[in-house]
Computed example of a mutant assay.
Amino acid sequence: MNPRRKKRLTIVIAVIAAIGVITGLVLYALSQNIDLFYTPSEIVNGKDDSGIKPIIGQRIRVGGLVVPGSVKRDPNNLKVQFDLTNKGETVTIKFDGILPDLFREGQGIIANGTLTEPKLLTASEVLAKHDENYMPKEIADSLGEGHEMPTYSEEQLNNG
């Protein structure tokens, strides 16, 4: 093999290796930003098909219904804590920020954040449904067929 071909081969191998390293780094960076969806029962018991549970420190999305009577607000700041449930399992959500206008007890929500304890999520974002008839598909599926939408009187709707 002459020196010119040897140099070309070295350059081609270096370029292919560089592309491989760059691809690996990009995939690693993207895997750190993936938010996996869990329900409260999947956080406690693991996913139905694989049994995988989220680990402490993992960024996840959790969806379910806000437990009536569980919302605790700090009067001095924007911190709020509430419980989220589905199929009997409950997870506590801590959030420091402004909740959506449509947030209320008994309603389906999705919280994005980091799992800080086995049943405690520190949320960075809380999303609420947009009207009385809508519930995210993942939450509706996780609650099962026996779930009924909460009903509110006119007085409850007007007061909060």
Rank of each mutant, 00 (worst) to 15 (best):
Q156N: 06
V66K: 09
I109N: 00
S153E: 08
V80A: 12
E132W: 00
Q81A: 14
V71P: 11
P3K: 10
E125W: 13
K7R: 15
S31N: 14
E132D: 13
K47D: 13
V80C: 11
V12I: 13
L121H: 05
K94C: 05
S41R: 11
S153M: 02
A17G: 08
G20S: 07
S153H: 05
H130G: 01
S153G: 03
I60D: 13
F103G: 12
V66D: 07
T39I: 01
G69T: 13
L65A: 02
L121P: 05
L78Q: 11
N77R: 02
P118H: 04
I19V: 15
E148R: 06
T85Y: 12
P40W: 10
I98N: 04
L27I: 07
K7T: 15
N86E: 13
P100C: 00
E105G: 08
A128R: 03
T116M: 11
I139E: 07
P68Q: 03
I93G: 06
D141I: 14
E117L: 09
L143W: 10
R104D: 13
I60F: 04
Y28V: 01
E145N: 15
G106N: 02
I139S: 02
T90P: 08
I93F: 05
D83P: 06
S50G: 07
A29C: 01
D48Y: 05
Q81K: 15
V66S: 09
R73L: 12
R104M: 02
I13G: 04
G113Y: 09
D131L: 02
L115D: 12
R61K: 14
G24S: 09
G144W: 10
V66T: 12
D83Y: 07
S70R: 15
E138K: 09
E148A: 01
G160P: 08
E89Y: 15
R59A: 07
T85L: 02
P100S: 02
K7A: 14
I56H: 11
A18I: 06
L115N: 10
G46N: 12
I43D: 14
G88F: 07
S142F: 05
